[in-house]
């Protein structure tokens, strides 16, 4: 099974880190990425630029609009993602739990759907 892991964090918290703190976190993250690559669990991963560089696009009544944001109404912003291959959800949770930023931010683990089902999007319960 494939899972997309979305790493949320407070940008302000990262920005206020000392150089040493940041270096250590960076190295730890890169080391974990390397381990996941070697064990065949990592499909892809990228960090994102600041949310201040984000643009939200919508088309309403045929009209395209582009706005800044999302603005930080929420405390945490999406800072990066990694897609993994895991045996099941609990293995994915373990892998996500070892991602260094999980210690101060949060990781949303989303199972990948096998394409778009014909009978409709999202089952209702």
């Amino acid at each position: 099974m494939k899972y997309l892991c979305l790493a949320y964090e407070q940008e302000s918290k990262l920005a206020s880190m000392s150089r040493e703190q940041w270096q250590s976190l960076r190295e730890e993250t890169l080391a974990y990425v390397e381990q996941m690559q070697r064990s065949g669990q990592l499909i892809t991963t990228w960090p994102l630029q600041t949310v201040r560089n984000a643009t939200t696009v919508r088309v309403r009544n045929g009209q395209l609009s582009a706005t800044d944001g999302p603005f930080a109404e929420t405390k945490e912003q999406l800072g990066g993602f990694f897609m993994i291959e895991a045996r099941d959800l609990n293995e994915a949770i373990q892998i996500a739990g070892r991602w260094p930023s999980a210690r101060f931010g949060s990781i949303e683990v989303r199972p990948i759907a096998e394409g778009l089902p014909e009978e409709g999007r999202y089952e209702t319960n």
């Binding site: 099974m1 099941d88 959800l89 609990n90 949770i93 319960n125």
Partner: peptide, 22 residues
């Protein structure tokens, strides 16, 4: 069995079952 298989068999949401295991 995988978390998803167990959840399916017990008609539970996988996330609920995963939390139980954690």
């Amino acid at each position: 069995l995988t978390t998803e298989e167990i959840a399916h068999a017990f008609l539970t949401a996988p996330s609920t079952l995963a939390q139980r295991i954690v």
